[in-house]
């Protein structure tokens, strides 16, 4: 029984562990060696999915902290990733409060709005207040690929949730 509890806790900590690992390790989803413009913000997908489905697994403090770590590793001004993650988190919370049951299509649509806001905030803060500049094209590609990867990860995370955590929605 106790062993089962530990396993359940480990599986429940999986999404948070993945979020931290993606922020701190060299593992990146910027597969430019394969396809030059391909870049993906997997952290945002993780945050949005789990905030909508299982908010108790993804604490806001952890999201904030993962953002700070990501900024240090990437070399961005501190707090910029945290802000964009928290914007996604806010949209996720709002959608969860307003909807009774969600589908992949409704999640995809609301994710699009959250992603646009988060990336716009990231772009405007980075370009206007820091020494680093980036282009609309780069942000655009990132938004595009993140948006189109969302359903794939939605299905994967849903499978993970049903297999290891339990199928009940938040």
């Amino acid at each position: 029984m106790a062993k089962g509890n530990v396993l359940n806790k480990l599986f429940a900590a999986g999404p948070l562990f993945l979020l931290y690992y993606l922020s701190i390790s060299e593992v990146d989803t910027n597969l430019e060696k394969l396809f030059e413009v391909f870049s993906l913000n997997l952290q945002i997908i993780i945050i949005y999915f789990w905030i909508i489905k299982r908010p108790n697994l993804m604490g806001t403090g952890h999201i904030f902290f993962a953002g700070l770590i990501n900024d240090v590793v990437m070399g961005f001004p501190l707090g910029i990733s945290s802000l964009s993650y928290l914007v996604v988190c806010f949209f996720g919370n709002y959608v969860r409060n307003k909807s009774v049951n969600t589908t992949i299509a409704s999640d995809w649509f609301t994710f699009f709005i959250a992603l646009i806001f988060a990336n716009l905030l990231f772009f405007s803060l980075l370009n206007n207040f820091s020494d680093i500049t980036t282009t609309f094209t780069k942000i655009g590609y990132n938004t595009f690929f993140t948006l189109f990867a969302f359903p794939i990860f939605w299905l994967l995370f849903n499978l993970y949730q049903m297999s290891f955590i339990g199928s009940q929605d938040a």
Partner: peptide, 22 residues
């Protein structure tokens, strides 16, 4: 229980950290 801080307070904190750093 798992959200010890509100999103609003963390957004404010992130903005403060960002401008202090910049």
């Amino acid at each position: 229980a798992s959200h010890k801080f509100s999103i609003f307070s963390l957004i404010i904190l992130a903005i403060i950290i960002f401008f202090l750093d910049v």
